[in-house]
Design a protein around this nucleic acid. Structure first.
Lengths: 329, 329
DNA sequence: TTGAAAGCGCTAACAG
DNA sequence: CTGTTAGCGCTTTCAA
């Protein structure tokens, strides 16, 4: 029963005190090589695993980080979380995952649970503010929280403004004269930012920029919206979409209408999701560096956990355009 | 400092003993309505959050479940994990997530960490056996572990054999006369099972079933393999792929060769991933019920955690064929 | 209906 | 180099 063996058992069986065993486990304090060997042998023989929960209680920190994320099923989020978890593990931290499903009530419950579990820190990707009446460090990642204050909150995001610009510019460079923008409204601040920057580029270039918004990030919704738009305004020859899934939905709508892509209308997506590279036609998209985003956020959070002053509390990571077939020709 | 307020603080401020506070928090034992109201007020005022780690230490169970998963970035896994986490949360459990990246050394480290954290149970989706010298219940999910013994291990999987059959049959019904099978070898037992059952169906129907295997689940690898196959055997008119990504890769290869899909060659994928429904052409695929799989596994695990005898230790969930364009016409 | 007190497994003074 | 011991915050007997 390794569950029953504790530091005291080890101590007794190896003829030392619990203090010595603890020192050996944590490699601090002093002890002779011989005692160490003896103790280690006993630990191995009994398959002893130090009880982390006791350690956490005593040390008042838990070596676990909580992550609040809307939906791990979204490939952008799952990439971030993979990187976060891998990176945190190299520091000895574990990850508690909480899907909030864009549900504020659920999110609050998860947050309460994380506080009760005394996590060392929280990474919040939901776009909501974490109201914590206490001292758990929070870093916001990917979605800028509502009412974000540059000097109060810690935020790592990718450069959505530039991303939106790049997308619009790629269409412009491909020769499009009449560009529309499709975005998901009120669901994700990032879509909003991409949308706004794309529109402003188009305005700078003297275009009026038709805008279509849909209520969720959904391919069928995008399909319907695009069909409607194009029938209303047949001169459109370019379409900025604020997500790859929207681009796919748009493509499908154009397909139904028999409008060739990129022949007649060119389009761009966003996120460089797995889909974008293997779609037919492959989708020009904006790549965000999930690894850098994750590591920046983790670095920042661990500094706060360690009580250090955080040098930058707002990091904006660069994006890059991946040109593919939907903007060629 | 809510982090500093504990049950003792609450007790003192509300003029009762810690025992009473504990009873109120956990709604067990007896206490008067008045004391409860008084204590609750103090807890609210101080933003008190019961310390779960102390509770876990005392009660010797942690209300957290560990999940070992190869790669959360894979949409099949992320769907399972979303469902698992949502469902576990309804029972008050949290989820510790561990990506093993198909790396056995890393997996072992994660497993050790989970044991040290005294998780209540483990869900293992990696296809490896969890060697635990002790009493933490384990349920295997999705990937049958190596050396699986029907009466020793608890397993929830989906019906890959039927899935493989359905895929092959759909091609047969679509009129294909010369069907090949593409699968990823030695990486995931499920691909192997789908492959074997597809081949056996084809044999039953008097076909010889060309086989191509690749070493990883990778679209480019599939593309290359298919091009080679088709050039070697131009009579092929159907292709079973053991994963959607492989189907997409295959499609891209055929596209390069100028072979129409489904006109000349029809194909099937597997997993009904987000991609399959929105691809052009949309991909006929085998749908696995992630929700049922997850809930079965969680139910089984929680029964074991609760010390109950588990009625079924091997659950096989049904799959269904989703017919789409790649097998039409 | 309530309280006192032991103890979960560990760490960190402090003492030697 | 090693041991003794208090105590982290909580639950739970036992007693009142």
């Amino acid at each position: 029963m390794p569950q029953k063996v504790n530091i005291k058992t080890i101590a007794e069986l190896s003829g030392v005190s619990v203090a010595t065993v603890s020192r050996i486990i944590n490699q601090n304090g002093r002890f002779s090589a011989e005692t160490e060997a003896r103790v280690r042998k006993v630990m191995d023989d009994l398959h002893y695993y130090p009880n982390t929960v006791a350690k956490s209680l005593r040390q008042k920190h838990s070596m676990v980080i909580g992550i609040l994320v809307p939906d791990i099923t979204n490939s952008h989020f799952s990439r971030l979380i993979l990187e976060i978890q891998n990176y945190l593990f190299t520091f000895g931290y574990s990850v508690l995952i909480c899907n909030t499903n864009e549900d504020n009530t659920l999110e609050k419950q998860h947050l309460d649970a994380l506080i009760s579990q005394r996590v060392s820190g929280i990474l919040c990707l939901t776009g909501n503010r974490c109201v914590i009446n206490g001292s758990i460090p929070v870093v916001y990642l990917d979605r800028r929280p509502q009412g974000y204050k540059d000097n109060e909150d810690c935020l790592v995001e990718s450069d959505n403004m530039t991303g939106g610009r790049l997308a619009a510019l790629s269409l412009l460079e491909a020769g499009c004269k009449n560009i529309a923008v499709l975005y998901a409204k009120d669901v994700d601040i990032n879509h909003q930012m991409r949308f706004e920057s794309a529109v402003s580029v188009l305005k700078e270039h003297g275009m009026k920029a038709d805008v279509i918004s849909i209520d969720r990030v959904s391919a069928p919704l995008a399909t319907a919206a695009v069909k409607q738009l194009v029938q209303k305004n047949p001169t459109i020859d370019g379409l900025v979409c604020t997500g790859d899934l929207l681009a796919v939905g748009a493509f499908l709508g154009l397909l139904e209408l028999g409008i060739p892509v990129p022949g007649k209308i060119k389009l761009t997506g966003y996120d460089d999701s797995p889909l974008a590279g293997v779609y037919n036609p492959s989708i020009t998209s904006i790549h965000q560096d999930a690894k850098s985003m994750s590591q920046s956020a983790v670095d920042m959070l661990l500094q706060m956990v360690g009580g250090e002053q955080v040098p930058h509390n707002h990091v904006v990571l660069p994006v890059r355009l991946i040109e593919r077939e939907t903007t060629r020709g």
